[in-house]
Amino acid sequence: MTDYLLLLVATVLVNNFVLVQFLGLCPFMGVSSRTETAIGMSFATIFVMTVASLLSYLVTTYLLVPLNIEYLTTMSFILVIAVVVQFTEMVVHKTSASLYRLLGIFLPLITTNCAVLGVALLNLRSHHNFFESIIYGFGASVGFSLVLVMFSAMREKLANADVPTPFKGAAIAMITAGLMSLAFMGFTGLVKL
């Protein structure tokens, strides 16, 4: 139990996917201009990443490894992710129109979020078992959501700040992201696995 908790904390804070491993930077910069959309994107990503890491574990363990075709992992993971995203979109569209509107275009965009593929491949590389894979996927997406929402809140504040002309817009956002990344380096050594 402690191991799982440690793994969760480690993936959310210490090995944060965005600020420490630099995965999923495209939605991190692209969807963070408003907090509302950032929260929507976060929920969609949490769901998709958790389910995708679960399914990719099953595909690897029960299909690719027994048949000795591990060289197809990347391709099969992309297939799995695309299907999960599509399926989620359909279900959300049917069940909750308001959530669908909130997520909008970001739902299909998760397909191209490299953090989703990254979590599946890293699961494989670090030989996680079934539950570890789910926790790793969940932790990675929670970490992603955490920094995405924090960053969007900062950017909303920045929109009202008196920024020097050369730093306006994306430039100051990049600097902010860099400073956040530096701050997250402080978590290194918090958990040792």
């Binding site: 299907v83 599509q86 399926f87 359909m90 279900v91 569209h93 049917k94 069940t95």
Partner: peptide, 11 residues
Amino acid sequence: LLGYASIRFKV
């Protein structure tokens, strides 16, 4: 699966 979902969850 997706084909079934697109019929089952048709909006």
